[in-house]
Amino acid sequence: MKINLKILNSSYISASKKCEGLNEKELVKNMMLRRRLTRSARIAIYLASKVGYSNERVVFGSAYGEVKATVDIINSIYHKTLLSPTAFQNSVHNTPVSYLSIVSGNTGEIITVSDLFNTSLSVLKTGAIKALNGDRLLLLSIDTFDFDGVKEINRCNVTELESGVALLVEVTDQKANIAITDKKYGEISPSLWHMLDVYNSAKELDNPVVEVEI
């Protein structure tokens, strides 16, 4: 089945170490909540604001989750020190978009998919099927993995340790002018490549429409 998605808006951010200028104070007024936000949650809230998100259903993708939290947990287990409850709750893959739902008061469907290097492709496919309901969806793909020891496991030689891409989409009957490709973006986590490629194509077009095959 082929489903065409009209890209209503899109945004992208990345940094070699830590994304700055995420406008947290403006976007998350509650200081206690703001302080609890994970790195991916901050990026999710920022990207959502950039594409004009207004509590649409959300499909989020992350290949690795909050790696820093997972690393903290596995080290606690190895050294037999007490686990941080915060690290545990933050290690859950859908935590970033759960924070987005809390900040925005979104009581709709919010889901997370994770398929390693095909993660953002899975976001597009999942979003395409969900979009057949006729509503707008926010598609997000984010991965952050700045932690001590990242060099030991960074076998793809990713140089941007934080990156995220957002697409606000709806289903359309219009002809597609973007095809999903397997283009590589070496410096970025491969989990984002498919959506990043769509983002790069979309920003060059007046009326971007991507064809998703599932």
Binding site: A63, Y64, G65, V92, H93, N94, I111, T112, V113, S114, D115, L116, S122, K125, T126, I214
Partner: peptide, 25 residues
């Protein structure tokens, strides 16, 4: 190690047409 590991094991054995993994706790 990753969330994808379950899908990886199953796809290798059964060669599904396509797959997606959901991880919402």
């Amino acid at each position: 190690q990753s969330i994808y590991s379950i899908s990886h094991i199953l796809n290798r054995e059964f060669k599904f047409k396509d797959s997606i993994t959901f991880s919402t706790a």
